[in-house]
Design a protein around this nucleic acid. Structure first.
Length: 643
DNA sequence: GTTGGGAGAATTTTT
DNA sequence: TTCTCCCAAC
């Protein structure tokens, strides 16, 4: 028997060893949330709960992986039978088994954002006569997504939104209907569908719901403050029968309400789950007191919250957070680089240092400067590895080779051929009868005969690759397939299409190297749409790679570094002007709080006063962020100009 | 129908 | 500066 009390502080121990029933753990930043969750898993297993009876839901893939790793070190390889992952992953896993109950085939494809939006764009064009005076597909996509994630009414969403030109809600509804139909006809689901269709599956098929609810006798949810209505209903349906629900979260760190996350879910948890135990974790093991004081001051500005104060356990560092007022982006970059050099001199490793920012574009100048000076960095934000055109081409190729191709992969692949565009691709797909199975010689011969003369030679090469794919067992070794594709045909395509062909080819080689070993290509393809740049096989390598870290604050959630530098602490930048249009600044403040609480020892806030606008040479004067101004002067050190 | 050039717009956060 | 969309030429 494990002596839990000796391994955990009293509050953590209370959470870990809590009896059956609903449990809410309010875990402030850096108070051992992950530790508590993983020990809870270990505790349950020691009590005789089988791993396959436990469901562990997280918000990011990284959190899921980290928790599994840590749990494995406690309980050993049996942990493999535990279902853990993001809501999207778990729903995906369920739908792969149950999709037929919803009228989908089990081999449905997942549309990533680009695919989903271009499909939506087609529907929009079919409905709207004058697209110039109609919101763009991105805007419509956002409205549809908002309605889906909040179980809301699309018409109400449209009526509540403001547009340049008046918008007829009927048209938006019609676009949404067509989009639904289009997805169904092509056996495709977008990200939101993974959640909403699983919920519908449970609603319409109580026996399926019951099967999963029975199986998962214990449901554990991380980052509960960032769940949306659909997610909380899914949890409810899985856990209501047995009440063994553990929700862990911090209302201070709710930063995804723009995606439908509703921190009411955590605020109302005690009401919805009668007899729920509440445990507060407030002892912070991460940061020095100087950082915590600043964090507490920032979050105090928000009205509605569970009262929690970060209590320091570490000794003082004798150094307050530094607020550096600099002139512009160039000076900010210099400041960052000097700060990094100082940190390195005092013994930190590059990977101990993180530069955080509100939006991707905030880091552009710094990135260029780091590159110029050949300072190593790891950028974990921006376009994902799998989102670039060349990566998607390669994945489309794999999809064509491995089992039955889907419309989206087919269209993409055909579009690469000379003289073939969307219309021809559509026609070909129609003539194939809406299917293509690369394992069938008849399908391959038919397609080869249908390809227009102009593209025939290219397609013959690729068709040969498809033949080799099956003859040489590439299905078991995806990287061989990718390399063969690149060498035989794709590199030449890149050369004639892009001016940065070498870069892209190198990317593809890298991708080939990253393909999971020992996994069938089909398995990889199923979930590739749910992977982000953080989830590639080399995640571990990335974790240990040298170089300072550059990341958005959102992506930094759950992580920590000894030294944290925050860029662009200015009005309009952080808080972002766009976000303020949506409502009050409380979410931006929570986001700022998340940024500050990532720092263990040392925090630098950069406040440039001037920004060059994109385009031709305009400049904009910036005022220091309200979040900086709100910091009591005695908690920080101010510095004007460079070191 | 496809492709490439040119004009125009634009920078929030993620599964 | 970079991507996206639209139009005109093939």
């Amino acid at each position: 028997m494990t002596d839990w009390a000796s391994l955990l502080n009293p509050e953590q121990c209370a959470a870990v060893t809590a009896p059956d029933g609903p449990l809410l753990v309010l875990a402030a930043a850096g108070t051992g949330k992950t530790r508590t969750l993983t020990y809870r898993v270990a505790y349950l297993m020691e009590q005789g709960v089988a791993p396959h009876e436990i469901l562990l839901l997280t918000f990011t893939n990284r959190a899921a992986r980290e928790m599994l790793e840590r749990a494995e070190s406690l309980v050993g390889p049996a942990i493999a039978n535990l279902w853990s992952g993001t809501f999207h992953h778990i729903c995906h896993r369920i739908l792969r088994l149950e999709a037929e109950a919803l009228g989908y085939s089990r081999s449905f494809v997942i549309l990533d954002r680009d695919d989903a939006q271009s499909l939506l764009g087609k529907c929009l064009k079919a409905v709207v006569a004058d697209p110039k005076h109609f919101p763009k597909k991105e805007v419509i996509a956002a409205l549809i997504g908002k309605a889906a994630n909040t179980e809301g009414d699309l018409r109400a969403e449209v009526e509540a939104a403001t547009f340049k030109d008046p918008v007829d809600p009927e048209q938006v509804l019609e676009i949404a209907r067509r989009y639904e139909t289009a997805k169904r006809e092509s056996n495709a689901m977008d990200f939101d569908d993974l959640l909403t269709l699983t919920l519908r599956l449970f609603r319409e098929h109580p026996e399926v719901q019951e099967r999963y609810a029975k199986r998962f006798r214990y449901v554990l949810v991380d980052e509960y403050q960032d769940t949306n209505i659909v997610q909380s209903q899914l949890v409810e349906r899985l856990a209501r029968a047995h009440n063994n629900l553990m929700a862990v979260g911090d209302d201070f760190q709710c930063i995804y309400s723009w995606r439908g996350a509703n921190f009411r879910n955590i605020m109302d948890f005690p009401k919805r789950w009668e007899g729920c135990r509440i445990v507060k974790l407030e002892r912070n093991y991460r940061s020095v007191p100087e950082v915590l004081s600043a964090a507490n001051a920032i979050i105090a500005g928000n009205p509605e919250q569970f009262q929690k104060t970060l209590l320091p356990t570490r000794p003082s560092a004798g150094r307050k957070p530094l607020v550096a007022f600099v002139r512009n982006a160039a000076e900010q970059s210099q400041m960052v680089i000097r700060h990094v050099q100082r940190a390195l001199q005092s013994g930190y490793r590059p990977q101990d240092i993180a530069v955080l920012y509100r939006s991707h574009f905030h880091v552009m100048e710094l990135e260029l400067e780091l590159r110029r000076l050949r300072i190593g960095y790891v950028l974990t934000s921006g376009q994902g590895v799998f989102e670039s055109a060349h990566a998607k081409d390669v994945i489309a190729f794999l999809r064509m080779c491995s089992g039955g191709a889907d419309l989206f992969a087919f269209t993409r692949m055909m579009g690469l051929l000379p003289g073939v565009g969307p219309k021809t691709a559509e026609r070909l797909w129609g003539k194939l009868g809406g299917r293509f199975d690369a394992t069938l010689d008849t399908d391959r011969k038919l397609l080869l005969s249908l390809i227009p003369a102009k593209a025939r030679e290219d397609w013959q090469t690729i068709d040969g690759l498809i033949g080799r794919y099956h003859a040489e067992g590439f299905e078991e070794n995806g990287s061989k397939a990718v390399i063969a594709f690149l060498d035989t045909w794709y590199e030449a395509y890149l050369q004639r299409t892009y001016d940065n062909a070498e870069e892209r080819a190198a990317d593809v080689s890298e991708l080939a190297a990253q393909l999971p070993k020992g996994e069938r290509v089909a398995e990889f393809l199923y979930s590739v749409a749910l992977m982000t740049n953080l989830d590639a096989e080399n995640a571990q390598a990335l974790k240990d790679a040298p170089g300072i870290r550059l990341s958005t604050v959102h992506q930094a959630k759950g992580l920590e570094w000894p030294v944290v530098i925050l860029l662009w602490c200015d009005e309009e930048m952080f808080p972002s002007a766009k976000a303020l249009q949506e409502g009050d600044d409380s979410e931006e403040r929570r986001l700022f709080y998340v940024a500050v609480t990532r720092a263990k020892d040392d925090l630098l806030l950069c406040v440039p006063s001037l920004r060059f606008l994109p385009g031709n040479g305009g400049t904009l004067y910036l005022r220091p962020s309200r979040f900086v101004k709100e910091l009591p002067p005695d908690l920080i050190t101010k510095r004007y100009g460079m070191y």
